[in-house]
Design a protein around this nucleic acid. Structure first.
Lengths: 188, 188
DNA sequence: TAGCACATGTAACTCGTTACATGATTTG
DNA sequence: CAAATCATGTAACGAGTTACATGTGCTA
């Protein structure tokens, strides 16, 4: 039984075969918004997946300088992934460093507190803009737009996570604005 | 320079002196929504804080069966806490296991997918109800209600984190409902 | 009298990050 | 020719969880 990282890799491999290096790239942008991993974690994990019979590789002499191993999920791996995805996630402890800082915000001079929240607000607005651009891409591509309503398509799944990201950023922006209004009220 | 856990402990001690055992209790409910720690982490960390001069303890023969050490922040610790709290948090990697499952949701039969999202929705509704109850307590207590607008009061800080929690649960509920509507559309 | 709350500590293990290690190919 | 990209691995370290270890006082 793999770790969460193992399932993350299977989830990527179920969409298309990839090398360890490509998996590492993928762990940045699309999926990287909610899960990341460095190559030093990925390579050993791929070996474990293969040992467990959930993935297998093929050596490929691609255009690159050295031989690369291209991994794909096995039928067993695909079943394991679906089984895992259908289970409710175990309620891991939420860890939000910003909230901890907010909890201690009364010890900070109000103008510094305002700077902190201002910076957060700017961050979230920037991320919202990025997500909105990605959303526009989804809707703009006819092939993808067609799959948006089919729960069996990967495009649907990607779009669902994107919607969550959009909603999250809007929530966070709203809260920052609320907090900023309170902090501004105490201006000298 | 302490770890995040160290600052979490300082944030609690800045409000009132506590023993290791009491800190462990506190890491469950109020602050535990966004940071948790077990006693096996807390006791060594307290020793480190003391070694760094940020907290100190006094042995107390309380009503309990054995001597307990009651910790309080030092003036240095208080300054360190305020300095840390004013700094923007470093953007740690977001890790959301549910999003990973959603990313793989296309591999899951739609009726199972619906069950998963249903369960999440119920969880979030329950947590929202809890937060709303806590909010009502804040507003009901005249002493606390008076401090709600003062950025220098711990009550204000606690209330701000609570508002974020309320907003977060509402965001998550909205997204679950959105997703459920898409999944229901594909009903056989 | 069995179990729970009180009360504090250490040890082993897992997960993740950063640094170490190597080396070819392409691009400026 | 120097730097970035491609490409894969291991080692050391830090943070966190679970389990080990000990012992008192109260309550069902």
């Amino acid at each position: 039984v793999p770790t969460t990282l193992g399932y993350a890799l299977l989830a990527l491999l179920a969409r298309q075969p990839r090398t360890g290096y490509e998996l590492r790239q993928a762990m940045r942008e699309p999926i990287g918004f909610y899960w990341t991993a460095s190559h030093s974690q990925i390579y050993p994990e791929l070996a474990r997946l293969e040992a467990a019979g959930l993935a297998r590789h093929q050596v490929v002499n691609g255009p690159g300088p050295r031989d690369t191993k291209r991994y794909r999920v096995t039928a067993t791996g695909r079943r394991a992934l679906a089984g895992w995805a259908a289970e409710p996630p175990e309620p891991g402890p939420e860890r939000d460093e910003l909230m901890l800082k907010i909890y201690a915000l009364w010890t900070v001079p109000p103008d510094q507190a305002r700077d902190l929240v201002d910076a957060q607000l700017a961050d979230h607005r920037a991320r919202l803009a990025r997500y909105e651009a990605i959303e526009a891409e989804f809707r703009g591509d006819p092939a993808e737009a067609a799959a948006l309503d089919d729960p069996r398509s990967p495009v649907f799944a990607s779009f669902a996570t994107l919607q969550c990201g959009l909603s999250y950023e809007r929530h966070r922006i709203g809260w920052c604005e609320w907090l900023l209004a309170r902090l501004a009220a105490g201006v000298s």
